[in-house]
Simulated assay, not measured.
Amino acid sequence: MTVVVWVVAAMLAVAAALALVRIVRGPGPLDRMVGLDVLLSCLIGGLGLEAAANEHGSTLPVLAVLALLGFVGSVAVARFAAGEHDSDGGVDGRPR
């Protein structure tokens, strides 16, 4: 199992490095947000790999909080980028 752990850890490290490149060189804020999401996913995967390799479940609450944080952050940025709110204050484009 040690070889599998090292291979997966190497793949996660490469993915995290490529995500850092996307964060630094991303042409727009949405590209940077995608890079942050991938980086957070790599972090979650790394913590899960560590928990599986050491056969303990004490990091499960941390993994759940990180996943929730990533989801809420992505939804917030997507709503901001979509520009759903108009000048009347209505969400769906109809006046109140």
Rank of each mutant, 00 (worst) to 15 (best):
A13R: 04
L43H: 00
R25H: 08
D86V: 11
R94F: 14
E84S: 10
S41A: 14
R25G: 04
T59S: 13
S87M: 09
H56Y: 14
G89H: 12
H85P: 05
T2V: 15
D37E: 10
E50C: 07
L36I: 09
I23T: 01
L63W: 04
A17I: 11
A78K: 07
H56C: 08
P27Y: 10
V75L: 14
E84R: 12
A76L: 10
V3Y: 14
D86A: 12
I44Q: 01
E84D: 13
L60M: 09
L39G: 05
W6I: 14
D88G: 06
H56K: 11
M11G: 12
A64P: 04
V24W: 15
S58F: 15
S58C: 07
L43C: 04
D37V: 07
G35M: 03
L63S: 04
R25E: 09
I44C: 02
G28V: 06
I23A: 01
D92Y: 09
A16I: 06
L18I: 03
H85R: 15
G46Q: 03
G28N: 11
P27G: 10
M33E: 03
V34Q: 01
A16D: 09
S41H: 04
E84F: 15
A17F: 12
D88R: 08
V21W: 12
E55T: 11
L30A: 09
M1Q: 08
L40V: 08
G28A: 07
T2W: 15
G48R: 01
G48M: 02
A19Q: 05
V91R: 14
A10V: 13
V24K: 11
A17L: 14
A13F: 10
V65R: 06
D88C: 08
L40T: 07
D37A: 10
E84A: 12
L36C: 08
V75D: 08
A15H: 02
T59I: 09
V8P: 04
A67C: 05
A78I: 05
R94I: 11
G70W: 03
G70L: 04
L43F: 03
S41R: 05
A81I: 03
G46T: 07
D31M: 01
V21I: 12
A17Q: 04
G46Y: 03
V65C: 02
V34L: 08
A51H: 00
V75F: 12
G48I: 01
L39F: 13
A13P: 01
P61G: 02
G35V: 03
H85Q: 14
H85V: 14
A82S: 12
R96D: 13
T59N: 09
V21H: 10
G26F: 01
G35S: 05
P61Y: 02
S58A: 14
L40F: 04
A67L: 09
D88Y: 11
P95M: 11
R32W: 00
H85I: 13
V38Q: 01
V21S: 06
A67Q: 05
V34Y: 00
A64K: 07
D92W: 07
A19G: 08
V21P: 03
M1L: 09
N54K: 13
R94A: 13
L49K: 01
V14A: 15
G28F: 06
A78R: 08
F71R: 03
L12C: 06
V77L: 05
L49W: 01
